[in-house]
């Protein structure tokens, strides 16, 4: 599999300020790669290096085998980019802006029209009069109106309503179906969970982990709340991947990690009145990388050495979001 993007010990600092440190990432052609991290983690710096706006302090960023800095204009024929907060010229209408960008990218001046219609964007309104959500639509139209093989998106849906977020996910899925590569920087975790094949998590400028969304979720704990007909026998839940978080008679709260089949086989013998099994969503997992600064470098929710214990009880949290199958 060829790589669309390769970051080789990529480091960028701003004087004494940290930017990104020793990033090692390979994004395969045709995949949707999520780049996750909170504000200030280094996502935008990484994208600026990829787009050739800033030079790496050390290391290298290559896209389709070309250097992101020295070959930038050549590469930009193959990249569609959407910044996190593009400073559109407010005096232009959306149509004028999109026509301008289409011409610069060598498209037909009206290349934006079908997508604008699909996203229900009013092209005749000056951009300064558009809501933030509608400005985001302008960005989506701009980035998806072409057929560049690589899309580099920096927090593209921050102000979109749920319907438009769904439309965005469809656009990403269509891009992937076309064999295009998507590099999606986000802190919108459900969005990444639903759209990405793999994700890289960045914290304080350093890459913490690269994994698939599936592996990240499957290697993690599930929270199980049981309401039983009768209290269980002592030691009933003694299984290697099971922990009893709380037990008060007939109510039992357990955490199960990894394979749930032994657990399901064990509880099949019980008189179960109610059960709620939730997997932590990616947000829970993601936050676990950040909630313990003292454990930096030791955290690893997939069970790596030094991995933290089970997540805290989910009692009192939002209702079950997903039932394990």
């Amino acid at each position: 599999m060829r790589n669309a993007i390769e970051l080789d010990r990529l480091t960028r600092s701003y004087g004494r300020r940290r930017g990104i440190v020793d990033l090692e990432v390979e994004v395969h052609e045709g995949e949707v790669f999520g780049f996750l991290g909170p504000n200030g983690a280094g996502k935008t710096t990484t994208i600026r290096v990829l787009m050739g706006f800033i030079r790496p302090t050390s290391g290298r960023a290559t896209i389709f085998g070309l250097d992101a800095w020295s070959d930038a204009p050549r590469l930009h024929r193959r990249i569609a980019h959407l910044g996190s907060d593009p400073g559109y010229l407010g005096e232009l209408t959306a149509a004028e802006l999109l026509r301008h960008l289409a011409r610069l990218r060598g498209f037909e001046p009206a290349a934006w029209r079908p997508l604008a219609a699909r996203l229900d964007l009013d092209p005749g309104v000056p951009i300064r009069k558009l809501s933030r959500g509608n400005r985001n639509k302008v960005g989506l139209v701009a980035v998806f109106m072409g057929h560049e093989p690589l899309l580099v998106l920096d927090e593209p849906t921050s102000a979109l309503d749920p319907l438009m977020q769904r439309e965005f996910l469809r656009l990403v899925a269509e891009a992937r179906a076309d064999g295009r590569t998507v590099f999606l920087s986000s802190h919108n975790l459900p969005e990444v969970e639903r759209s990405c094949d793999r994700i890289g998590i960045i914290r304080d400028g350093r890459l913490v982990e690269i994994t698939t969304v599936g592996a990240l979720l499957s290697g993690h704990w599930r929270s199980v709340n049981l309401v039983l007909g009768t209290p269980p026998d002592p030691g009933f839940f003694d299984l290697p991947n099971l922990e009893v978080v709380a037990s008060s008679g007939r109510d039992v709260h357990l955490m199960v990690r990894g394979d749930v089949n032994p657990f399901l086989a064990r509880i099949a013998r019980l008189d179960i009145r109610d059960i709620a099994i939730t997997t932590p969503d990616i947000e829970d997992l993601f936050l676990r990388y950040y909630d313990d600064q003292a454990g930096a470098g030791q955290l690893g929710p997939t069970g790596a050495p030094g991995a933290p214990g089970p997540p805290p009880p989910t009692d009192g949290r939002a209702p079950a979001r997903r039932v394990a199958r």
């Binding site: 706006f53 930009h76 980019h81 400073g87």
Partner: peptide, 18 residues
């Protein structure tokens, strides 16, 4: 000014050389 407001990234994301 265009760098400050974030506009400059749009044209420079296209094949237009600086």
């Amino acid at each position: 000014a265009d760098l400050d407001r974030g506009w400059i990234e749009l044209p420079l994301s296209t094949p237009t050389p600086r």
